[in-house]
């Protein structure tokens, strides 16, 4: 019975970890909106929340890892689960990196890329959301994993497309080269979020095949 309680506790921890990543994805979209609207105070608050979430997610991940090793849980899938958690943690890390860059560097976003950027942020958020659903499915009902992973891959592709378009627009424009390079770096950091999502999705697809009886 005590063992079952430990199992339940771990299930809860993993759910909470995924909640943190999911909430960070939502807040990331809000941060961008506040930034584009010039609401720096609100943006600052959200950034702090993301930073706190990222810190908490790190602690959860470490706790889960220790728990898994201490009680030799899921020995067969332990490596896979740890890899999912570590790579999902990279998503929230990247969200924090991207928003901190915006907060610190406050890049000047030209009007001609705002629309594409908003679409890119939306797709990034969708990719994170679908990834969290896929990860939850992996733990709860792995038969549904593929229903979500293909959406992650779809949104990641969309983000790549938007990123390409934005970079093209930037480098076709007549703004300063330093400005161009700065914007390119900002776009690259946003793009990296969905890239990390894709990395986790790819792993989930393989691990799901492994989990089949």
């Amino acid at each position: 019975m005590a063992f079952l309680n430990k199992v339940k506790l771990l299930e809860l921890k993993i759910d909470e970890f995924l909640d943190l990543v999911s909430e960070s994805g939502i807040m990331f979209e809000q941060v961008i909106s506040f930034f584009l609207e010039g609401e720096y105070n609100l943006m600052n608050q959200k950034c702090e929340m993301i930073r706190a979430h990222e810190h908490k997610a790190d602690e959860y991940r470490k706790g889960i890892e220790q728990h898994l090793y201490k009680y030799t849980l899921i020995p067969e899938n332990r490596g896979d689960v740890l890899s999912i958690l570590e790579n999902t943690d990279k998503v929230i890390n990247q969200i924090k990196t991207a928003v901190m860059s915006l907060l610190i560097e406050k890049p000047n976003i030209p009007d001609f890329i705002i629309q594409y950027m908003q679409m890119m942020i939306k797709s990034t958020n969708y990719a994170v959301e679908e990834l969290i659903k896929a990860a939850r499915a992996f733990f709860h009902n792995f038969h549904l994993v593929n229903d979500y992973t293909h959406k992650v891959l779809f949104y990641e592709k969309e983000v790549d497309d938007f990123s390409e378009k934005i970079r093209k627009e930037i480098f076709d424009s007549k703004i300063d080269l330093t400005h161009k390079l700065h914007l390119k770096q900002v776009i690259y950091e946003i793009e990296m979020i969905s890239d990390h999502c894709q990395e986790v999705a790819d792993r989930l697809i393989i691990y799901t095949i492994k989990r089949q009886l």
């Binding site: 771990l10 899938n77 009886l213």
Partner: peptide
């Protein structure tokens, strides 16, 4: 077993248990 696992969502840790 396969049928049961396909029709019932069992958490990975619960299944391990």
């Amino acid at each position: 077993f396969n049928r049961y696992l396909n029709n019932n969502a069992i958490h990975i840790f619960r299944l391990d248990y």
